[in-house]
Amino acid sequence: MGSPSPKPQNLPFLVLLLLPLLRVLSAGTPSLFYRLTAVSSAPRGTPKFWGSGWLGPQLFLTYSSGGNAEPWGAWRWESQEAWFWEEETWYLKKQERLLQEALRVSKEGAQIFQGLVGCQLKPDNSSQPTARFALDGVDLLTFDPTRRDWFGHGAEASNVRNNWLNESKLAEKAAEFLLISCPQRLKSHLQRGKHNFQWKEAPEVRAGSLPGPGAALSTLSCQAFFFFPPDLELKFLREGKPVTELSPRLEPWPNGDGTFHSRGTLQVPAGDEALYSCTVQHPALTGSITVNFETPGRLPLPIRVSLVAGSLLFLACLAAVVACVIYRKRGGRPAPWIFRRRRAGDDVGALLSAPGSAQDPSS
Protein backbone atom coordinates (compact mmCIF):
# COMPACT_ATOMS: atom_id res chain seq x y z
CA MET A 1 0.00 0.00 0.00
CA GLY A 2 1.45 3.30 -1.04
CA SER A 3 4.86 4.05 -2.46
CA PRO A 4 8.21 4.74 -0.84
CA SER A 5 8.50 8.35 0.27
CA PRO A 6 11.55 10.57 -0.19
CA LYS A 7 13.36 11.48 2.99
CA PRO A 8 14.21 15.20 3.17
CA GLN A 9 16.33 16.04 6.21
CA ASN A 10 14.76 19.28 7.48
CA LEU A 11 11.40 18.17 8.92
CA PRO A 12 11.12 19.40 12.51
CA PHE A 13 7.63 20.91 12.07
CA LEU A 14 5.47 17.78 12.26
CA VAL A 15 7.78 16.18 14.81
CA LEU A 16 7.61 19.13 17.20
CA LEU A 17 3.84 19.36 16.79
CA LEU A 18 3.19 15.65 17.03
CA LEU A 19 5.10 14.94 20.26
CA PRO A 20 3.08 17.35 22.44
CA LEU A 21 -0.08 16.00 20.81
CA LEU A 22 0.91 12.43 21.66
CA ARG A 23 1.14 13.31 25.34
CA VAL A 24 -2.39 14.72 25.22
CA LEU A 25 -3.82 11.93 23.06
CA SER A 26 -2.31 9.11 25.11
CA ALA A 27 -4.11 10.64 28.10
CA GLY A 28 -7.39 9.72 26.38
CA THR A 29 -8.44 12.90 24.53
CA PRO A 30 -10.34 11.78 21.38
CA SER A 31 -8.89 13.36 18.24
CA LEU A 32 -8.63 13.10 14.47
CA PHE A 33 -5.59 14.56 12.70
CA TYR A 34 -4.23 14.47 9.16
CA ARG A 35 -0.48 14.84 8.60
CA LEU A 36 0.21 16.11 5.08
CA THR A 37 3.50 16.46 3.17
CA ALA A 38 4.17 17.77 -0.35
CA VAL A 39 7.63 17.90 -1.94
CA SER A 40 8.74 19.87 -4.98
CA SER A 41 10.74 16.95 -6.40
CA ALA A 42 10.91 13.27 -5.61
CA PRO A 43 12.98 10.32 -6.82
CA ARG A 44 11.47 8.23 -9.60
CA GLY A 45 8.80 5.90 -8.28
CA THR A 46 8.10 7.93 -5.15
CA PRO A 47 5.14 10.27 -4.56
CA LYS A 48 5.26 14.05 -4.44
CA PHE A 49 2.52 14.05 -1.81
CA TRP A 50 1.51 11.71 0.97
CA GLY A 51 -0.69 11.89 4.02
CA SER A 52 -1.73 9.85 7.01
CA GLY A 53 -4.75 9.94 9.31
CA TRP A 54 -4.45 9.51 13.06
CA LEU A 55 -7.19 8.69 15.56
CA GLY A 56 -5.56 9.59 18.83
CA PRO A 57 -2.13 7.98 18.63
CA GLN A 58 -3.35 5.30 16.19
CA LEU A 59 -2.56 5.41 12.48
CA PHE A 60 -5.81 4.51 10.71
CA LEU A 61 -5.40 5.81 7.13
CA THR A 62 -2.69 6.26 4.49
CA TYR A 63 -2.66 8.05 1.14
CA SER A 64 -0.09 8.93 -1.52
CA SER A 65 -0.20 10.59 -4.94
CA GLY A 66 -2.15 8.69 -7.56
CA GLY A 67 -3.74 6.32 -5.07
CA ASN A 68 -6.74 6.18 -2.78
CA ALA A 69 -7.18 6.71 0.93
CA GLU A 70 -6.91 3.26 2.48
CA PRO A 71 -7.69 2.12 6.03
CA TRP A 72 -4.72 0.87 8.00
CA GLY A 73 -4.19 -1.79 10.67
CA ALA A 74 -7.24 -2.88 12.63
CA TRP A 75 -9.24 -0.12 10.95
CA ARG A 76 -9.37 -2.23 7.78
CA TRP A 77 -12.36 -4.01 9.33
CA GLU A 78 -14.18 -1.01 10.71
CA SER A 79 -17.81 -1.05 9.64
CA GLN A 80 -17.90 1.91 7.25
CA GLU A 81 -19.75 2.40 3.98
CA ALA A 82 -17.65 2.49 0.79
CA TRP A 83 -18.54 6.14 0.21
CA PHE A 84 -16.80 7.06 3.49
CA TRP A 85 -13.37 6.10 2.16
CA GLU A 86 -14.19 7.72 -1.19
CA GLU A 87 -14.86 10.92 0.74
CA GLU A 88 -11.50 10.57 2.51
CA THR A 89 -9.81 10.13 -0.88
CA TRP A 90 -11.54 13.23 -2.27
CA TYR A 91 -10.47 15.31 0.74
CA LEU A 92 -6.82 14.21 0.55
CA LYS A 93 -6.63 14.76 -3.23
CA LYS A 94 -7.84 18.30 -2.61
CA GLN A 95 -5.19 18.80 0.08
CA GLU A 96 -2.58 17.46 -2.33
CA ARG A 97 -3.51 20.08 -4.93
CA LEU A 98 -3.51 22.91 -2.37
CA LEU A 99 -0.13 22.01 -0.87
CA GLN A 100 1.46 21.58 -4.29
CA GLU A 101 0.12 25.01 -5.30
CA ALA A 102 1.53 26.45 -2.07
CA LEU A 103 4.96 25.13 -3.01
CA ARG A 104 4.77 26.73 -6.44
CA VAL A 105 3.88 30.21 -5.16
CA SER A 106 6.25 30.18 -2.17
CA LYS A 107 9.93 31.15 -2.26
CA GLU A 108 12.13 29.89 -5.06
CA GLY A 109 13.86 26.65 -4.20
CA ALA A 110 11.33 25.61 -1.53
CA GLN A 111 11.38 21.85 -1.06
CA ILE A 112 8.70 20.81 1.43
CA PHE A 113 5.24 22.07 2.40
CA GLN A 114 3.53 20.37 5.35
CA GLY A 115 0.25 20.56 7.17
CA LEU A 116 -1.33 19.30 10.37
CA VAL A 117 -5.13 19.51 10.15
CA GLY A 118 -7.76 18.08 12.47
CA CYS A 119 -9.76 18.39 15.67
CA GLN A 120 -9.99 17.24 19.28
CA LEU A 121 -13.10 16.67 21.39
CA LYS A 122 -13.16 18.54 24.67
CA PRO A 123 -14.74 17.09 27.85
CA ASP A 124 -17.91 19.13 27.14
CA ASN A 125 -18.13 17.41 23.70
CA SER A 126 -17.24 20.61 21.82
CA SER A 127 -14.46 20.53 19.22
CA GLN A 128 -11.05 22.21 19.18
CA PRO A 129 -9.86 22.67 15.54
CA THR A 130 -6.22 22.78 14.39
CA ALA A 131 -4.85 23.76 10.98
CA ARG A 132 -1.16 24.65 10.80
CA PHE A 133 1.21 24.72 7.85
CA ALA A 134 4.99 24.91 7.43
CA LEU A 135 7.48 25.56 4.66
CA ASP A 136 10.80 23.68 4.72
CA GLY A 137 10.23 22.75 8.35
CA VAL A 138 9.46 26.30 9.59
CA ASP A 139 6.03 27.40 10.86
CA LEU A 140 4.32 29.44 8.13
CA LEU A 141 0.52 29.75 8.44
CA THR A 142 -2.33 29.04 10.86
CA PHE A 143 -5.96 28.90 9.73
CA ASP A 144 -8.65 30.44 11.95
CA PRO A 145 -12.01 28.83 11.01
CA THR A 146 -14.08 31.45 12.85
CA ARG A 147 -12.44 34.32 10.92
CA ARG A 148 -12.18 32.31 7.67
CA ASP A 149 -8.58 33.39 7.12
CA TRP A 150 -4.95 32.24 7.26
CA PHE A 151 -2.42 34.12 9.39
CA GLY A 152 1.37 34.18 9.20
CA HIS A 153 4.39 36.43 8.76
CA GLY A 154 6.71 37.06 5.85
CA ALA A 155 6.49 37.22 2.07
CA GLU A 156 6.08 33.43 1.67
CA ALA A 157 3.12 33.37 4.07
CA SER A 158 1.52 36.29 2.24
CA ASN A 159 1.95 34.62 -1.17
CA VAL A 160 0.37 31.35 -0.05
CA ARG A 161 -2.44 33.12 1.84
CA ASN A 162 -3.36 35.30 -1.14
CA ASN A 163 -3.32 32.30 -3.48
CA TRP A 164 -5.70 30.37 -1.22
CA LEU A 165 -7.96 33.39 -0.64
CA ASN A 166 -8.34 33.80 -4.40
CA GLU A 167 -9.89 30.34 -4.68
CA SER A 168 -13.65 30.62 -4.47
CA LYS A 169 -15.16 29.40 -1.18
CA LEU A 170 -11.93 27.67 -0.10
CA ALA A 171 -11.89 29.39 3.30
CA GLU A 172 -15.57 28.53 3.90
CA LYS A 173 -15.00 24.88 2.99
CA ALA A 174 -11.89 24.66 5.18
CA ALA A 175 -13.85 26.11 8.11
CA GLU A 176 -16.75 23.72 7.48
CA PHE A 177 -14.40 20.75 7.54
CA LEU A 178 -12.74 21.78 10.81
CA LEU A 179 -15.92 22.77 12.64
CA ILE A 180 -18.42 20.23 11.30
CA SER A 181 -17.01 17.38 9.16
CA CYS A 182 -13.98 16.60 11.33
CA PRO A 183 -15.94 16.21 14.60
CA GLN A 184 -18.58 14.13 12.80
CA ARG A 185 -15.95 11.78 11.35
CA LEU A 186 -14.25 11.49 14.71
CA LYS A 187 -17.48 10.60 16.52
CA SER A 188 -18.31 8.07 13.80
CA HIS A 189 -14.96 6.32 14.28
CA LEU A 190 -15.33 6.39 18.06
CA GLN A 191 -18.69 4.64 17.75
CA ARG A 192 -18.01 2.16 14.94
CA GLY A 193 -14.39 1.30 15.73
CA LYS A 194 -14.26 1.61 19.50
CA HIS A 195 -12.84 -1.92 19.86
CA ASN A 196 -9.80 -0.86 17.81
CA PHE A 197 -8.69 1.53 20.53
CA GLN A 198 -8.04 -1.49 22.76
CA TRP A 199 -5.21 -2.65 20.48
CA LYS A 200 -1.89 -3.19 22.27
CA GLU A 201 1.47 -4.26 20.88
CA ALA A 202 4.30 -5.24 23.21
CA PRO A 203 7.74 -3.70 22.60
CA GLU A 204 10.79 -5.49 21.25
CA VAL A 205 13.77 -4.47 23.39
CA ARG A 206 17.41 -4.43 22.28
CA ALA A 207 20.45 -3.41 24.28
CA GLY A 208 24.08 -2.95 23.30
CA SER A 209 27.23 -0.99 24.06
CA LEU A 210 29.77 0.96 22.03
CA PRO A 211 33.11 2.51 23.00
CA GLY A 212 32.55 6.09 24.16
CA PRO A 213 34.40 9.27 23.18
CA GLY A 214 37.27 8.32 25.48
CA ALA A 215 38.89 4.94 26.03
CA ALA A 216 37.69 5.02 29.66
CA LEU A 217 33.98 5.25 28.73
CA SER A 218 31.39 3.04 27.11
CA THR A 219 27.97 4.11 25.81
CA LEU A 220 25.05 1.83 26.68
CA SER A 221 22.06 1.95 24.34
CA CYS A 222 18.62 0.53 25.15
CA GLN A 223 15.93 0.65 22.44
CA ALA A 224 12.27 -0.37 22.40
CA PHE A 225 10.65 -1.00 19.00
CA PHE A 226 7.17 -1.55 17.53
CA PHE A 227 5.08 -0.83 20.64
CA PHE A 228 1.59 0.59 21.04
CA PRO A 229 0.14 2.57 22.78
CA PRO A 230 3.00 5.10 23.05
CA ASP A 231 3.08 4.98 26.86
CA LEU A 232 6.38 3.32 27.78
CA GLU A 233 8.81 3.57 30.70
CA LEU A 234 12.48 2.80 30.06
CA LYS A 235 15.05 2.77 32.89
CA PHE A 236 18.71 1.87 33.35
CA LEU A 237 19.68 -0.15 36.42
CA ARG A 238 23.06 -0.63 38.09
CA GLU A 239 23.21 -3.85 40.08
CA GLY A 240 19.41 -3.84 40.12
CA LYS A 241 19.00 -0.26 41.37
CA PRO A 242 17.68 2.62 39.19
CA VAL A 243 20.25 5.00 37.72
CA THR A 244 19.22 8.58 38.47
CA GLU A 245 21.57 10.48 36.15
CA LEU A 246 19.28 10.05 33.13
CA SER A 247 17.39 12.81 31.32
CA PRO A 248 13.84 13.02 32.72
CA ARG A 249 11.56 11.84 29.89
CA LEU A 250 12.18 9.69 26.82
CA GLU A 251 9.73 10.65 24.08
CA PRO A 252 8.09 7.97 21.92
CA TRP A 253 8.71 8.47 18.20
CA PRO A 254 6.21 7.28 15.56
CA ASN A 255 7.03 4.55 13.07
CA GLY A 256 5.35 4.44 9.69
CA ASP A 257 3.20 1.44 10.62
CA GLY A 258 1.34 3.07 13.51
CA THR A 259 3.65 1.77 16.24
CA PHE A 260 6.32 3.69 18.15
CA HIS A 261 9.95 3.41 19.19
CA SER A 262 12.04 4.92 21.96
CA ARG A 263 15.71 4.98 22.86
CA GLY A 264 17.81 5.74 25.94
CA THR A 265 21.60 5.99 26.26
CA LEU A 266 23.95 6.09 29.23
CA GLN A 267 27.72 6.53 29.50
CA VAL A 268 29.46 4.25 31.99
CA PRO A 269 33.08 3.38 32.86
CA ALA A 270 34.52 0.92 30.35
CA GLY A 271 34.54 -2.56 31.84
CA ASP A 272 31.49 -1.93 34.03
CA GLU A 273 28.92 -2.76 31.33
CA ALA A 274 27.94 -6.09 32.91
CA LEU A 275 26.86 -4.25 36.08
CA TYR A 276 24.07 -2.53 34.16
CA SER A 277 20.70 -3.60 32.79
CA CYS A 278 17.77 -1.96 31.03
CA THR A 279 14.15 -2.45 32.11
CA VAL A 280 11.05 -1.58 30.09
CA GLN A 281 7.43 -1.38 31.24
CA HIS A 282 4.46 -1.11 28.87
CA PRO A 283 0.67 -1.64 29.06
CA ALA A 284 0.89 -4.63 26.68
CA LEU A 285 3.24 -6.45 29.07
CA THR A 286 2.11 -8.45 32.09
CA GLY A 287 5.47 -7.61 33.69
CA SER A 288 8.60 -5.71 32.80
CA ILE A 289 11.29 -6.72 30.28
CA THR A 290 14.83 -6.57 31.64
CA VAL A 291 17.87 -6.91 29.37
CA ASN A 292 21.40 -7.21 30.73
CA PHE A 293 24.42 -5.58 29.13
CA GLU A 294 27.57 -7.57 28.49
CA THR A 295 31.18 -6.51 28.67
CA PRO A 296 32.39 -6.33 25.03
CA GLY A 297 34.29 -9.40 23.94
CA ARG A 298 32.67 -11.83 26.37
CA LEU A 299 32.08 -14.32 23.53
CA PRO A 300 33.98 -14.64 20.25
CA LEU A 301 32.12 -12.87 17.45
CA PRO A 302 31.52 -16.03 15.30
CA ILE A 303 29.81 -17.75 18.24
CA ARG A 304 27.62 -14.71 18.97
CA VAL A 305 26.66 -14.42 15.29
CA SER A 306 25.76 -18.12 15.14
CA LEU A 307 23.57 -17.81 18.23
CA VAL A 308 21.74 -14.81 16.84
CA ALA A 309 21.25 -16.43 13.42
CA GLY A 310 19.87 -19.59 15.01
CA SER A 311 17.47 -17.60 17.18
CA LEU A 312 16.20 -15.58 14.23
CA LEU A 313 15.57 -18.74 12.20
CA PHE A 314 13.63 -20.29 15.07
CA LEU A 315 11.54 -17.14 15.59
CA ALA A 316 10.78 -16.91 11.87
CA CYS A 317 9.46 -20.48 11.81
CA LEU A 318 7.44 -19.87 14.98
CA ALA A 319 5.94 -16.65 13.57
CA ALA A 320 4.86 -18.48 10.39
CA VAL A 321 3.08 -21.17 12.43
CA VAL A 322 1.35 -18.62 14.67
CA ALA A 323 0.23 -16.53 11.67
CA CYS A 324 -1.23 -19.64 10.04
CA VAL A 325 -3.14 -20.58 13.21
CA ILE A 326 -4.51 -17.04 13.63
CA TYR A 327 -5.57 -16.97 9.98
CA ARG A 328 -7.46 -20.23 10.36
CA LYS A 329 -9.10 -19.17 13.65
CA ARG A 330 -10.40 -15.98 12.07
CA GLY A 331 -12.05 -18.01 9.30
CA GLY A 332 -9.58 -16.92 6.65
CA ARG A 333 -9.60 -13.23 7.62
CA PRO A 334 -6.09 -12.11 8.65
CA ALA A 335 -5.62 -10.66 12.10
CA PRO A 336 -5.17 -6.85 12.09
CA TRP A 337 -1.51 -6.92 13.01
CA ILE A 338 -0.46 -9.26 10.18
CA PHE A 339 -0.34 -6.28 7.81
CA ARG A 340 0.97 -3.81 10.38
CA ARG A 341 4.61 -3.71 9.28
CA ARG A 342 5.68 -2.63 5.80
CA ARG A 343 8.68 -3.11 3.59
CA ALA A 344 11.76 -1.03 4.30
CA GLY A 345 11.41 2.19 2.34
CA ASP A 346 7.60 1.83 2.12
CA ASP A 347 7.15 3.92 5.20
CA VAL A 348 4.69 6.78 5.22
CA GLY A 349 6.06 8.01 8.53
CA ALA A 350 9.74 7.54 7.79
CA LEU A 351 10.15 11.30 7.60
CA LEU A 352 9.41 11.49 11.32
CA SER A 353 12.23 9.22 12.42
CA ALA A 354 14.20 10.34 15.42
CA PRO A 355 18.01 10.60 15.43
CA GLY A 356 19.32 7.20 16.37
CA SER A 357 16.00 5.51 15.70
CA ALA A 358 15.40 2.10 14.19
CA GLN A 359 15.96 3.58 10.73
CA ASP A 360 19.34 4.97 11.73
CA PRO A 361 22.10 2.49 10.74
CA SER A 362 24.36 3.89 13.47
CA SER A 363 21.94 2.88 16.24
Rank of each mutant, 00 (worst) to 15 (best):
L190D: 03
A358M: 02
A354Q: 11
L121H: 09
W150I: 03
I303D: 06
Q58M: 13
A69G: 13
L98G: 00
C317S: 14
F339R: 12
G115D: 04
V243S: 02
W77L: 15
G356T: 00
L210F: 15
R333G: 01
Q128D: 12
E78W: 06
T142M: 12
W337G: 11
V348G: 07
S353E: 14
L186T: 09
Q100C: 06
G2P: 12
G66R: 05
Q9R: 12
A270N: 12
R132M: 13
T146G: 00
F151D: 02
L178H: 11
L14K: 07
R147C: 04
F260N: 00
G310E: 07
E251T: 06
P252G: 06
E78Y: 02
R147W: 01
L266T: 03
G66M: 06
A270W: 08
R161G: 00
L217F: 07
A171F: 05
G240T: 10
P211F: 03
C278F: 11
D139C: 02
L165Y: 13
P57M: 07
L170R: 13
P47N: 05
H282I: 04
K94Q: 15
P355C: 05
A155F: 08
R76S: 12
G214K: 14
S126Q: 05
C317K: 14
D360G: 01
Q198G: 04
S311A: 15
S79V: 11
L18D: 10
A110H: 09
T62D: 11
E81K: 04
D144R: 04
P145C: 05
P269T: 09
F13R: 09
L141Y: 03
V348C: 12
W90P: 01
L17E: 11
R148N: 11
Q95V: 04
H282R: 05
L250S: 09
A216Q: 13
W72T: 15
C182F: 05
P296Q: 08
H189I: 11
V322P: 03
S306E: 08
D272P: 00
L16T: 08
P12Q: 11
F151Y: 13
L165M: 13
P57H: 09
G67A: 08
T142F: 13
V117G: 07
L217R: 14
D347F: 00
L178A: 09
G67C: 05
L14C: 07
S168R: 10
G73W: 02
S221N: 04
F314S: 08
P230H: 10
A171G: 01
G152C: 05
F260E: 00
D257P: 02
